[in-house]
Simulated assay, not measured.
Amino acid sequence: MNEAADQRLVDAVQAGDEVAVGQALADGADPNVTVGRFRGSVLAEAARGGRLGIVGLLVNADARIGPADAYAASPLRAAVLEAHTEVVRFLVAHGALTAEHATRSSVLTEAVSSTTFRPTPAALATLRVLLEAEAAPGPSEEAPLITAVMQPVAPAVLRLLLAHGADANQQRSDATPAIVVAACRGDHAAADVLLQAGADVNARDRQGRTALMHAVERNEQRVIAALLLAGAAIDTTSGDDMTALQLARGWQRQNIQSMLGERHVGLDDVPIVRTVVRVAATGVRLAGDPQMLHLLANVIDIALDDLGDDEWNTRTGTDAEVARAAARRLRDDIVPAAHASWHQLEATAAELAAARSALVELAYGTTRVMPAGTSRLELIDVLEELDRQLGR
């Protein structure tokens, strides 16, 4: 044991000094010396830093290709997490896949997840290297396509997985098809990629519910559009005797009823079997810069002045006095947020509804007056962003 040489090796690896690494090895340094309890071996440290030349020196010096112990990251895992593609390619070529601990999540699953948490071209390229090497998920893990849809990942990742043999009709371990998983998560992009790759648009889960039924229940209108354009069956009955249209009626989703072909819609009291819980907030926190919150106040005032109280009440279904109070509070009651740069207002659901109704009137209604310096299109943008956050 040459502790001095070992320390020089550690220092050289961390400094990225190939010459010093070669000298330390020539002086008898242990190529398997550990850097720290959880950082693993010097090979893992070099892989983590993307230092391909040093990785090659250590491997040629018979450094252990696998993890130093059950707790430390292996060289391959360290390289995958940092998306050092060429290091991953080198380690895979030297047998790193077979040296991984079976008790930890697979590097393939790690690579899929990395495209969500650290999305870079290198992360996608690293995943491609593993797929080309036929890396597999662990025995208790979901198939990579399911993992990707559940994250969710960017469409490019799904296309890469499908190009390397993933089945568009892949099922989760509970027999839920990937297209249903995408619909439940409101991921219209994933749904579209899966459908283009041949996923069965009418595939069912264990309850006999299709992706369309789940999307209807969750008010995911973009997913519904993708499914309908792909030919989703509207009249299919689930195991609990529900159809997509019945679910839309039961949740009183008039827009979706129209999408499903109904010509006359209303607020009918239709009993259905529900599989989701709907959240109806009684209060909200509006956060933004003062000028944006003041803009909402101006929008409310303009709509009230243009329509008058009676017409406002009739057209919006909200109380004019509540709207007037909301405008006043948007001017006078906003406060700086603690430990943050924005301002905020604790508003009631009725006050939020009044602000949204005013935006609708100025964006799409008969009101022609706009706040100074603001166009109708800009108000449409504000309304659409608000609706997106509200799940409309």
Rank of each mutant, 00 (worst) to 15 (best):
residue 141 E to S: 11
residue 335 V to T: 11
residue 35 V to P: 11
residue 350 A to N: 15
residue 388 R to P: 09
residue 212 L to K: 13
residue 295 L to K: 01
residue 358 A to S: 08
residue 51 R to L: 07
residue 359 L to H: 08
residue 19 V to L: 01
residue 52 L to N: 04
residue 228 L to G: 03
residue 116 T to C: 03
residue 308 G to P: 01
residue 355 A to P: 01
residue 200 D to N: 13
residue 144 P to V: 02
residue 188 H to L: 07
residue 268 D to H: 08
residue 65 I to C: 10
residue 170 Q to E: 15
residue 124 L to Q: 10
residue 202 N to S: 05
residue 39 R to K: 07
residue 40 G to N: 12
residue 91 L to H: 09
residue 242 M to W: 10
residue 111 A to C: 05
residue 291 Q to T: 09
residue 61 A to T: 06
residue 362 L to S: 04
residue 345 L to R: 14
residue 55 V to Q: 09
residue 45 E to W: 08
residue 109 T to E: 09
residue 183 A to S: 12
residue 29 A to E: 02
residue 252 Q to D: 06
residue 170 Q to F: 07
residue 19 V to P: 00
residue 366 T to E: 11
residue 266 G to N: 06
residue 165 G to I: 08
residue 310 D to L: 12
residue 259 M to R: 15
residue 42 V to D: 01
residue 195 L to W: 02
residue 301 D to H: 05
residue 126 T to Q: 07
residue 12 A to W: 06
residue 12 A to H: 03
residue 132 E to P: 06
residue 355 A to V: 03
residue 220 E to R: 10
residue 57 L to Q: 07
residue 308 G to I: 10
residue 181 V to P: 02
residue 154 A to D: 03
residue 237 T to L: 12
residue 205 D to P: 05
residue 51 R to D: 08
residue 219 N to V: 05
residue 340 A to T: 04
residue 2 N to K: 11
residue 1 M to D: 15
residue 29 A to K: 01
residue 303 A to C: 03
residue 164 H to C: 07
residue 57 L to K: 02
residue 289 D to Y: 11
residue 336 P to W: 01
residue 193 V to Y: 00
residue 90 F to T: 04
residue 226 A to H: 12
residue 96 A to R: 09
residue 263 R to K: 15
residue 364 Y to F: 12
residue 265 V to M: 03
residue 300 I to V: 08
residue 320 A to S: 08
residue 51 R to W: 11
residue 209 R to Q: 03
residue 81 L to Y: 09
residue 341 S to L: 13
residue 292 M to E: 09
residue 236 T to G: 13
residue 172 R to G: 14
residue 381 D to C: 02
residue 246 Q to R: 13
residue 360 V to W: 14
residue 155 P to Y: 15
residue 163 A to L: 10
residue 115 T to I: 07
residue 151 Q to P: 04
residue 194 L to W: 00
residue 208 G to C: 05
residue 95 G to E: 08
residue 178 A to W: 03
residue 57 L to E: 04
residue 328 R to K: 15
residue 269 D to P: 14
